[in-house]
């Protein structure tokens, strides 16, 4: 009694859609079409190149290591010199005072980018890794494991991130590496929740039911079905969080919670440059500020673009 051609179309078996290479290339092409995302991607890539060069071939940037920054400093001047062309490339963006020495803002900011990006990447990737696996397993397994996880994440979400980070830094010690651990502890629940939600959804799909029915173990299921499908939202979240973590890291330095005073970090540089604000010197604050802003804006543009492209609803 029903139009069978239509019925046939509707009863086609739901095919398991593992992300394929051509999928990624189509995604990438769509991403290239989004001009804002493209700009974000270019600038972000540029930052990563700088960080990479600074780490591996520091000589190309004229820096060998953080302590060598001293060779660029001018200890004599009292007030930092403003941006000008007369001091060569390093002096292009002006100087700032950094613990009784003057450093070229360009050099010190580039050095700081390496640390900022390195640590943010470390925090986000490890946090995402731990959180995603825990969340995926909990969501897939369900039951009391899931319940416990949700209660734990509830508690973590009941305290503002910054306050929680402060508390953990207090507990662990006021060092950079401890701040990294603290941010890790603060950040993994975000991914756990994300992955859990996704896992719950995937669990209800027919192909996973089929796999379970044919005797696939939980671990196998999680790794072969859930994780690949969780990946794209996690990836978007990573790109968005990279900016947030960098901000938070800079904030912790700015607040003076981390007591490694000689560490070149953008928040630290701004915090010290702030002392010159009263004297009307803007560059010690604005120049490193622009370095942070540019990174966070472009990574957000990239993240937004990725989300638009990966969201099947918006993908045309």
């Amino acid at each position: 009694m029903v139009d069978t051609t239509v019925m046939q179309a509707k009863q086609l078996p739901v095919k398991k859609r593992h992300p394929k290479l051509e999928d990624y290339s189509h995604t990438f092409r769509l991403l290239l079409k989004n001009k804002l995302a493209l700009v974000g991607m270019i600038i972000t890539t540029f930052y990563f190149i700088i960080a990479f060069l600074d780490l591996v071939f520091p000589r190309y940037l004229g820096v060998t290591n953080a302590s060598n920054l001293l060779s660029f400093s001018i200890p004599t001047a009292v007030t930092p010199i403003g941006p000008s062309f007369s001091h060569g490339l390093p002096g292009l963006l002006g100087y700032t005072e950094f613990y009784s020495h003057q450093y070229p803002l360009l050099t010190i900011s580039l050095a700081a980018i390496k640390f900022d990006i390195g640590y943010s990447l470390f925090i986000v990737l490890i946090g995402a890794g731990i959180g995603t696996v825990i969340g995926a397993i909990a969501g897939f397994k369900g039951g009391y494991i899931d319940e416990i996880l949700m209660r734990i994440t509830d508690v973590f979400f009941s305290i503002p991130f910054l306050i929680l980070a402060l508390a953990f830094i207090f507990l662990l010690g006021r060092y950079i590496i401890m701040a990294v651990y603290a941010l890790l502890i603060v950040w993994w629940p975000t991914y756990a929740r994300l992955a859990r939600g996704q896992a719950l959804y995937i669990k209800s799909m027919k192909y996973v039911e089929a796999a379970t029915a044919s005797g696939a173990s939980t671990v196998r299921n999680v790794f072969s079905h859930v994780l690949p499908n969780v990946l794209s939202p996690v990836f978007v979240q990573i790109s968005l969080d990279l900016g947030s973590i960098m901000q938070l890291f800079a904030v912790l330095f700015y607040l003076g919670v981390i007591s490694d005073p000689y560490f070149p970090e953008l928040g630290n540089i701004i915090s010290l440059g702030q002392n010159w604000l009263g004297a009307g010197l803007w560059w010690p604050v604005i120049i490193p500020g622009i370095f942070i802003l540019l990174f966070t804006v472009s990574i957000n543009l990239l993240g937004d673009g990725l989300r638009d492209v990966l969201d099947p609803k918006l993908r045309r």
């Binding site: 900016g243 901000q247 800079a250 904030v251 700015y254 928040g267 701004i270 702030q274 604000l277 009263g278 009307g280 803007w282 604050v285 604005i286 500020g289 942070i292 802003l293 966070t296 804006v297 957000n300």
Partner: peptide, 21 residues
């Protein structure tokens, strides 16, 4: 949204702060 709050605060101080510039 992407600007750290302290940077935004400092920027506003610079622009609208009494006796800053």
């Amino acid at each position: 949204y992407a600007m750290p709050v302290f940077l935004l605060g400092l920027l506003l101080q610079l622009l609208f702060g009494q006796n800053v510039i």
